[in-house]
């Protein structure tokens, strides 16, 4: 699997939803969570930096590697929900 250089993307919590659909996780055909769609009006869409097809390596510094889908999506959801930060940091990568 060719992973291109990771990029840190900071998405501000500027809307009521993050607005991404994520597929994949450990023990599936897509072992790292991949952005499947981006919903109009969500934070990801408004900030304009995330792209469909990118994989998410880390969320707020927490590695998603080896996490199953349910746990990885829980990490993302909790990063969005926490009031400690008004943004979510994604370490993302393009896949060849």
């Amino acid at each position: 699997m060719g992973v291109m250089e990771p990029t840190l993307v900071r998405v501000p919590k500027c809307a009521s939803t993050l607005g991404i659909a994520v597929e994949g996780g450990a023990n599936t055909r897509q072992p790292l969570p991949r952005i499947a769609t981006i919903q109009k009006g969500g934070c990801a869409h408004i900030s304009g930096q995330l792209r469909v097809g990118q994989v998410i390596l880390e969320v707020n510094g927490v590695s998603l590697k080896g996490m199953e889908h349910r746990d990885a999506t829980r990490v993302i959801a909790e990063a969005f929900k926490t009031k400690d930060k008004d943004y979510v940091d994604f370490l993302i990568a393009e896949i060849n």
Partner: peptide
Amino acid sequence: REKRLTLPPSEITLL
């Protein structure tokens, strides 16, 4: 490779 082919597809979660 064979193992990869037998892995199930993932569900999709909207966040």
